[in-house]
C-alpha cells in the first residue's frame, strides 16, 4: 500500500497540471469553434413580412457555405488578404530578421534603447495605431500628405489600390517589434563558442550571419512566419478604423470585416459563422502547408 500511493500520485500529477489549461482550452477555444460550426449549418426562417408571425431555426446543411462562396465581395476579400499576405509576410519576416541581426551584431550601440523602441509600437493597441496613422493619411490633416503636396508629389494614401499598402504599413509598424523580440531571444540562445569557432575558422561577420546565425534562427523564423500568415488573414481592426476616412474600403474589404458586417449589421449570424469557418480553414491550410513545405526542405537538406 505505501508504495502504491506515490505512484498513483505521479500518474495523477500530469492530469492535474494540464487540467486548468485543458479546461480553459475547451471552454474558450474548442467550444466556440464547435458552436460556430453548428451555427454555420443552421439558418433562421421568418413568417410574415416583418417576422411578426414568429421565426424558427432550421438545418440548411452547406447552404450558408455556398452562399458565402457565391458572394463575389467575400471571395474578392479572400483574394485581397492573400495578396496582402504574399507581400506582407516576406516584408515582415525580412525586416524583423534584419532588425534582430542588427541588434545582435557585435558592433551594435544603444541596444537596450533600440530594443525598447522597436517593441514600443506593439504596446499600442491596433485600433489606436490605426487612428494615429489615419491622421497621417488624411489629406488636409496629415503633415505627411500636405508636406509632399508642397513638394509637388500628390499621393492619395487612402484611395484606390494604395490603401491596402497603407494598411500594410500600419501592420508592419505594429508587429515588427514583437517579431524582432522573438528573434532576438532566439539569437541569445546561440552559444558563444560557435561564434568563437567561426572566428577561428576565419569567417567574416557576414559569413557568421549567413552560416551560423540564420540556420540557428530557423525555428524562430518559422514561428514568426506562421504568426504573420495567421495575423494577415485575420486583418480586421485596421480596415474597420480606416473605413470612415477612406472611400476605398468597402463593407467586405477583408473576410473578417465581411463576417463582422454579416453578423452585426445584417443579422445573418449563420452566414457569418460560415464565413468565419471558411477563414479558419484557409488559415489552417496555409499555416500547415507552410510548415510541411519547410519540414520537407529541412528533411532534404
Amino acid at each position: 500500500m505505501p508504495t502504491r500511493a506515490p505512484r498513483r500520485r505521479r500518474n495523477l500529477a500530469p492530469v492535474v497540471f494540464v487540467a486548468p489549461f485543458l479546461l480553459l482550452f475547451l471552454l474558450t477555444f474548442a467550444l466556440p469553434i464547435g458552436y460556430a460550426v453548428y451555427q454555420s449549418v443552421m439558418d433562421v426562417e421568418h413568417t410574415g413580412a416583418l417576422g411578426l408571425g414568429g421565426s424558427h431555426t432550421v438545418f440548411v446543411g452547406l447552404g450558408n457555405y455556398s452562399d458565402a462562396l457565391s458572394d463575389h465581395a467575400f471571395v474578392r476579400s479572400i483574394g485581397r488578404v492573400l495578396l496582402f499576405a504574399a507581400v506582407q509576410v516576406p516584408v515582415m519576416v525580412a525586416l524583423s530578421a534584419g532588425l534582430a541581426l542588427l541588434l545582435d551584431s557585435a558592433s551594435a550601440r544603444g541596444v537596450r534603447f533600440f530594443r525598447a523602441a522597436f517593441f514600443l509600437p506593439y504596446g499600442v493597441p491596433g485600433v489606436i495605431a490605426s487612428i494615429l496613422w489615419g491622421f497621417l493619411y488624411v489629406p488636409g490633416v496629415s503633415p505627411l500628405v500636405d508636406g509632399m503636396s508642397h513638394l509637388g508629389v500628390s499621393v492619395d494614401l487612402l484611395g484606390g489600390n494604395n490603401v491596402l499598402w497603407s494598411i500594410a504599413n500600419i501592420v508592419t509598424w505594429e508587429f515588427a517589434g514583437y517579431n524582432v523580440l522573438v528573434l532576438v531571444a532566439q539569437l541569445r540562445t546561440i552559444p558563444a563558442e560557435l561564434y568563437e569557432a567561426a572566428r577561428i575558422d576565419g569567417a567574416s561577420a557576414w559569413m557568421t550571419v549567413r552560416h551560423v546565425k540564420l540556420p540557428l534562427l530557423r525555428p524562430a523564423l518559422i514561428l514568426t512566419t506562421v504568426f504573420t500568415i495567421i495575423g494577415t488573414l485575420q486583418l480586421f481592426a485596421e480596415p474597420l478604423v480606416l473605413k470612415p476616412v477612406s472611400s476605398s474600403i468597402d463593407s467586405a474589404y477583408t473576410p473578417n470585416l465581411s463576417a463582422y458586417n454579416e453578423a452585426f449589421t445584417n443579422d445573418n449570424y449563420h452566414l457569418a459563422a460560415a464565413e468565419a469557418v471558411l477563414l479558419a480553414l484557409a488559415a489552417f491550410v496555409l499555416s500547415f502547408g507552410f510548415l510541411r513545405l519547410i519540414n520537407k526542405r529541412g528533411g532534404d537538406a
Partner: peptide, 18 residues
C-alpha cells in the same frame, strides 16, 4: 434589410470612384 442595401450602394459608389 436596409443596412445591407446601404452597404451595396456604398460598395458600388466606392467602386465607381475607383
Amino acid at each position: 434589410t436596409i443596412d445591407a442595401t446601404y452597404q451595396h450602394l456604398n460598395d458600388g459608389f466606392q467602386a465607381a470612384l475607383a
